[in-house]
Nucleic acid binder design. Structure first.
Length: 581
RNA sequence: GCACCUGUAGCUCAGCUGGAUAGAGCGCUGCCCUCCGAAGGCAGAGGCCAUAGGUUCGAAUCCUAUCAGGUGCACCA
């Protein structure tokens, strides 16, 4: 059920009839005809631009089209008035019954209200977090995790078949560094004094790994050359780090469907196969890259490398896939990984990167374009930096020293629900301020609280009703006669509820889950406003003393609000509050 | 030097992919609790949508240039 879509269908069907009967010339494209809520509610409930869009191709004045359309629309029971305004807008005012039916519809559909088949079951792969398995997740990863997870839920909610995936970078030099760092902690656990030179990870999280290892293998690796232990420690440490990362994700409530190992691409011919595929398209060649203009590094020297002709698919320069010593660059396994995704049959790929990987976007898109012959779109969303604040001061982090602020630090202090919601109160493109004090504040300034409070208020009313012996289950409320619901403040809430399915579609199409968070804030605002009107106008209170039927009608509206808030929070991965404490 | 992102009220940010008189919160002014939770609500003031051009019925939104901030820029992943 999507009221806006319904009315648009109505408008389009009338336009079709007008073409058939010769009022409009035949064969007009109606794709650009929209039905939207007007910015100013004084203009009505919905507005259509049909007349203005069609004016030019139909070679008619917009007002003439609008008037003809208005007359026809006015005949529909759902339309109360249809007025031509401004340059040719057609403003529609819907009957109160339409809004009341939205409320009943929400209660009858429950969790399904707002779900759509928009995705048509298309298979979408959302890859996110994908942090190197060299340590715990930090705040930056947290934002990516929350964003990716919410986007995945949003797409699933709108009819896509979603796979949540994590790419484990366990194939490069960084896991050697990890192994060496663990080795040092291992020696330390056996009583040796160790130092962490540059190029190792000094973080304290490896102490326990070293100790466990010492217990398991004793002094077997002491005084042994790297060749003896490097490989085993690499696997051992990587496994431990992935355990850590999985636990971090679990603390945030993120659950992946697939963990894909980079290492599994090496020595199995999979990288070679992907590169051969590109070679078959004439996109692999030996060549020398020009130095970047303006800023030539001191030690620049021309080098012949194996290159991918990414410029054929929109990149600025071609990219090396093999180092001069014959080993793969990082890009090569990434190509193979995305080739794997393409061959797994996904209709659409989405990668979530941190902003520091922005320079990687074009080449990755070029690769997928080449690998899928342009069939599979790849959207890459970058999440900007998170700036932490505490006690009015910025919280610095320094990965080098190993004392960076971790996902755990954040989740343990403010909880997963608050963490998730706050991370989505900004669009992914914009930097985010995360203030430990403000996110726990209980005021309107804090959107998490504000939305949760609205939900808790509804729950409170329902509890009160139950205590008074009034049936307030969804079945009873969904069947209630809503004719007593009609005040402007009540209709405002119903209108907001009617926007939900449309909002979901827009957010899903744009891959922008933050829109859900903002919508919930607006819905909560309408609800709080109505609630407070009850102070001066007792007839707007949800519980009407001695009048069960009216109470049920009012509660139906309140309950519909909580259903939608609950669904929205569900997409964001946040648990709705039953009461505020 | 190049690429990507950002620039909207004093501050922090939305703005439904081109619609009407650009919206919220904070802050500021003034109001509302014998009332389901005032942890709320109502009203007011506050804008050249960075700047300059362009596209069209119509631009914060699309194009070009400029300015300012952020991120990144050959064998690091």
């Amino acid at each position: 059920m999507n009221l806006f879509a319904d009315i648009r269908t109505l408008v389009v069907s009338h336009l079709d009839e007008m073409m058939q009967s010769g009022v409009l010339p035949a064969g007009l494209a109606l794709d650009n005809v929209t039905v939207e809520p007007p910015r100013d509610p004084a203009h009505g409930d919905m507005a259509t631009n049909a007349a203005m869009v069609l004016s030019k191709p139909a070679k008619m004045k917009p007002r003439d089209i609008a008037e003809a359309l208005a007359t026809r629309l006015a005949g529909d029971a759902r339309i109360e008035t249809a007025e031509v305004a401004g340059p040719g807008f057609l403003n529609l005012r819907l009957s109160g019954g339409v809004w009341r039916s939205v409320v009943s519809g929400v209660l009858q559909q429950g969790d399904a209200y707002g779900r759509s088949g928009m995705g048509q079951g298309r298979k979408v792969n959302v890859e996110y977090v994908s942090a190197n398995p060299t340590g715990p997740l930090h705040v930056g990863h947290t934002r990516g995790a929350v964003f990716g997870d919410a986007l995945a839920s949003l797409l699933a909610y709108s009819g896509h078949q979603v796979t949540r995936e994590y790419y484990i970078n366990d194939g490069g030099a960084q896991v050697d560094v990890l192994a060496r760092s663990v080795y040092l902690r291992y020696l330390e656990a056996l009583g040796e004094a160790v130092e962490f030179p540059d190029g190792t990870y000094p973080g304290e999280y490896l102490i326990e790994v070293g100790e466990t290892l010492a217990k398991e293998v004793g002094d077997r690796y002491v005084d042994q050359p790297e060749a003896v232990w490097l490989e085993q420690l690499r696997d051992y440490a990587t496994d431990k780090m992935m355990e850590l990362i999985r636990a971090d994700l679990a603390a945030l409530g993120v659950k992946m469907d697939v963990f894909f190992s980079e290492k599994s691409l090496y020595g199995t011919g999979r990288i070679e196969a992907a590169i051969e595929y590109l070679r078959g398209k004439g996109l692999i060649y030996r060549g020398v890259l020009e130095p970047p203009k303006g800023k030539t590094p001191e030690d620049w020297e021309p080098r012949e490398q194996t290159l991918f002709k990414s410029t054929d698919h929109g990149d600025d320069v071609d990219r090396p896939i093999m180092k001069s010593d014959g080993s793969w660059t990082y890009f090569a396994p990434d190509i193979a990984y995305h080739y794997d995704k393409v061959t797994r049959g996904f209709d659409e790929l989405i990668d979530i990167f941190g902003a520091d990987h922005g320079g990687y976007v074009k080449r990755m898109k070029a690769a997928v374009s080449a690998l899928s012959e342009g069939r599979v779109p790849l959207d890459i969303k970058l999440t900007q930096l998170v700036k932490l604040w505490k006690n009015g001061e910025p919280f610095k982090m320094s990965k080098r020293a190993g004392n960076f602020v971790t996902l755990r630090d954040v989740v343990e202090q403010v909880g997963p629900d608050v963490t998730r919601f706050v991370m989505l109160t900004r669009k992914n493109d914009a930097p985010l301020d995360f203030d430990f004090d403000k996110v726990l504040e209980q005021s309107r300034e804090n959107p998490v609280f504000y939305v949760q409070y609205a939900h808790a208020r509804v729950m409170s009313v329902l509890r009160k009703a139950a205590e008074a012996g009034i049936a307030a289950d969804d079945a009873a409320l969904g069947a209630a006669d809503l004719s007593s619901v009609g005040h402007e403040a009540e209709l405002a809430v119903a209108r907001k509820l009617a926007e939900w399915p449309r909002l979901v579609e827009i957010a899903a199409r744009a891959h922008e889950p933050h829109r859900v968070a903002f919508y919930l804030y607006e819905l909560a605002g309408e609800f709080h406003a109505l609630w407070n009107r009850g102070h001066e106008l007792p007839e707007l209170r949800f519980l009407q003393e001695g009048d069960i039927a009216t109470s049920q009608a009012k509660m139906a509206l309140a309950r519909a609000v909580s259903v939608v808030i609950s669904a929205g929070l569900g997409i964001l991965g946040v648990t709705p509050a039953q009461e505020m404490r």
